[in-house]
Design a protein around this nucleic acid. Structure first.
Lengths: 131, 131
DNA sequence: CACGTATATGCGTTCAAGAGTATATAAGAA
DNA sequence: TTCTTATATACTCTTGAACGCATATACGTG
């Protein structure tokens, strides 16, 4: 196992990560909240730690785990290449919703001017190519 | 196997997805570009299709595969809960870089005003709050 | 010291995903 | 029809990740 993708593929690990969003937690706290056997928690925490998703601080016999940002950034970077793909999709939904709550929407113009509306990553899409 | 996370955990599948970003491709084209045995490509495409990452169009004996946006959005939604975590981190880096190549120290706005109804894959970080 | 708590690790088992090979299906082309 | 190209599927084998259980380590307390 290696990549950040493998790490987050495991549901229990994702649960742990989500739990740590709010604040750092000890192994026991995670164990109780997620109702997961302690060795399971420890083993997943080990994987997460070695992958850089979390780091631990020693507090007496406890170990407090907290999130680290880097791997999430890496995930986001990978996802970035697909953003144009679905931001376009979001736009379609937005246009739909805009039409929904636009009160006077009568006589839809055959060609509505696209509003400038600059937001989110690259707004230039389109380029047919799909034959 | 079920979740979108399991799907993208496989390196070959990620390669296929990345390949399809530029444009739709036939199985044979994918096979050649990725130097991957044809059954392997077909099997991964099947998984990707059933998970909604791609869809196929029939073109004579060929099948043209192209990306679909939804699963990527789902990934982005999951990632969203961690954004605050690392946007902070990015900000630190940005501030650093800004100081690097900003010789004249141009009054960077302390707080950008939020535009009405924000959306699109969130590019807005800011909002400190994290301790 | 002995004892309880908190966490980590070792071991055996199970299970399913990926790979490889062969083969099936389908659609042109001759 | 027969042949060739393009893609899908069936089957077997291997591997490795996750789990359960037992145990080791470490710290605090009496």
């Amino acid at each position: 196992m290696e990549s950040v993708f493998d790490i987050i593929a495991e549901p229990n690990r994702r649960a742990i990560l989500s739990l740590l969003v709010s604040s750092q937690q000890s192994v026991g706290e995670i164990e109780r909240q997620l109702r997961m056997p302690q060795p399971t928690v420890s083993k997943h925490l080990r994987v997460l730690r070695e992958a850089g998703f979390v780091e631990s601080r020693v507090d007496a016999q406890r170990r407090l785990y907290r999130l680290k940002p880097e791997p999430f950034q890496e995930l986001d970077d990978w996802l970035a290449q697909f953003r144009r793909l679905w931001s376009q999709h979001v736009d379609a939904l937005e246009r739909h919703l805009d039409r929904m709550d636009a009160p006077m929407d009568r006589a839809r113009p055959t060609k509505s001017k696209t509003t400038k509306r600059q937001r989110g990553p690259n707004r230039e899409h389109d380029n047919g190519e799909t034959k």
